[in-house]
Design a protein around this nucleic acid. Structure first.
Lengths: 302, 302
DNA sequence: ACAAAAACATCATAAAAAATGATGATTGAC
DNA sequence: GTCAATCATCATTTTTTATGATGTTTTTGT
């Protein structure tokens, strides 16, 4: 003999509440014989009658009403689950674990995070900051990663894609009164890194790595005397007159006006690419899809 | 698009717990593709992935583990319901609402009630005492009725049957020192009801109705001067010397030895029939079936 | 590093379950 | 007593679910 089927209990709960097979059937968008059949099966499996006809209505036996309590618990649990799924589909809930580098976290992401929170208040966002390698290592626990520069595809878990996001420019950061401002108003040559005291970022910094690669390509060997952690540290040192620094152009937008950006290696400048690491298409949660759309500026409306 | 199916959630719960599709399939006595298919459907309906393969194991996404909580609630509710049904089938639970007349309640049923409680401690018994008519009227709320004498079949709700249970004898009750004891040691004629002061039961009493019918048949017109409620009342009055009474022979078994029974209308005596009113075969709860078997003395062992 | 084994996905097909529509029986109302 | 409403039952069709075979990926053992 077969076991009890949850659907039969759910059907039974509706019938018991409505006290009518016909109305329960309507409620469930089914025909009346379908409901009758389910009830019959349920009673066979329970082994005794759960109700009997009392005129045009239906009356539960004691066993029936005892079973009803369990059926209603089941109904409640089922309702909760459906409700959760529904909220998920409406993006009224969800989790987004983002990993990103210091620079992106500080100067690029905030506006998108705000947009996401505003548009989908139900989505919980967890931020996780680290250098590119750390982010790649933590990918399995992340929904979305943001890094500067390219990563060899084979270094990514292969159900993740590297997707170009935005382009940005690395610029030299100098004090407004620095001689370079007058000397190279259109942009400085790479040689300045050899000729001036440079405030370097930490070795893992994407910006520093780009500069170093570029210098190697140009055959310039620049000494590294001063090294500070983070964009803010560089800016502080530059502002204090310790030397010249470099940073993402975006970072300069919100800096104090006594620092000015100078294009490096004119006329095209030192462009770098910010990339997004996301699960392959089809493996993305709705929250991820939503955030990616926000990042691409192509928001749809609900 | 279809809605979520409880079975899919239950399957998902097992897979998540086992962290393996294959082992979950074994646990559920299904093939592995069946489980894979259910999971696939569930994910389609939820709209995003719930897990991903991580080597040979399975790892839930955040949405997956959130949904798992609901799935486990569902599983728990389902388990409770199945458990209830199972206990029901083992008669470890159940309800028995019995209606019976005063006489049967007091002198016939107790031993069976004790047997039932001993054998099936989980069954709850509710007793309900009233005269035959009251019991018949309350049948819809009862599981089992016990009455004396016959009821016309058409007066019963037609999903109930009248089933002969035991035979009993109505006897005259007199004091040990009463003259009738010596005069009619083998049994008294009906005429004693006319010639002696009789303590009558209330008019609804089955025993009284049987006596009255018998007297009418015999053309004897007996005066009714004293009327008391219940067997115990009759016995008390007889013991006090107020007159003679009548009662079920069974009632005399447990009475004090200063009262003696005398057969009425020898040699066959005044036999009456105790009947049981039960739902039609197939409409009986397991508890009812069990109690009926106890009443018939044909107990099976578990 | 390579082969074998284990775990899961996918597909076409078979089996089982559920829904339907038609019909009959019972009940309550007028 | 007739009519309308409600539920049960049945044969049939539709839908759902499970299966067996096969392919892919990951781990394990040598």
């Amino acid at each position: 003999m077969k076991n009890i089927n949850p659907n039969q209990l759910l059907t039974f709960a509706v019938v018991a509440r409505m006290k009518s097979v016909t109305r329960a059937a309507e409620y469930l968008h089914l025909g009346q014989p379908a409901v009758s059949g389910q009830l019959k099966l349920l009673q066979e499996r329970v082994g005794e009658p759960l109700y009997h006809r009392r005129g045009h209505q239906i009356e539960l036996t004691p066993v029936g009403s005892a079973l009803l309590e369990y059926a209603e618990k089941l109904e409640h649990a089922m309702h909760q689950a459906c409700d959760y799924v529904h909220r998920l589909q409406e993006l009224d809930t969800g989790i987004l674990r983002i990993g990103s580098t210091i620079t992106i976290t500080s100067y690029f992401l905030p506006e998108y995070l705000v947009m996401c929170q505003t548009r989908f208040p139900g989505i919980q966002i967890y931020m996780n900051t680290g250098n590119s390698q750390e982010i790649i290592d933590r990918l399995p626990e992340l929904d979305l990663g943001f890094i500067e520069g390219v990563v060899k595809e084979e270094k990514l878990p292969d159900d993740y894609d590297l997707i170009p996001w935005r382009d940005d420019e690395i610029v030299l950061v100098v004090r407004k009164d620095h001689e370079l401002v007058e000397k190279y108003p259109e942009g400085v040559p790479l040689s300045v890194f050899k000729e001036y005291q440079v405030i370097w970022r930490e070795p893992e910094s994407g910006a520093r790595q780009l500069i170093e690669e570029t210098l190697v390509e140009a055959g310039i060997n620049a000494p590294i005397n001063i090294e500070v952690m983070g964009v803010a540290g560089v800016m502080g040192s530059v502002r204090a007159g310790l030397g010249i620094g470099f940073a993402s152009l975006q970072a300069l937008n919100h800096a104090s006006p006594d620092l000015v950006p100078l294009r490096i290696k004119p006329p095209e400048g030192l462009v770098w690419h910010l990339n997004l690491i996301a699960p392959r298409e089809g493996l993305r949660s709705r929250a991820v899809q939503a955030f990616m759309q926000i990042c691409n500026g192509t928001q749809e409306q609900s």
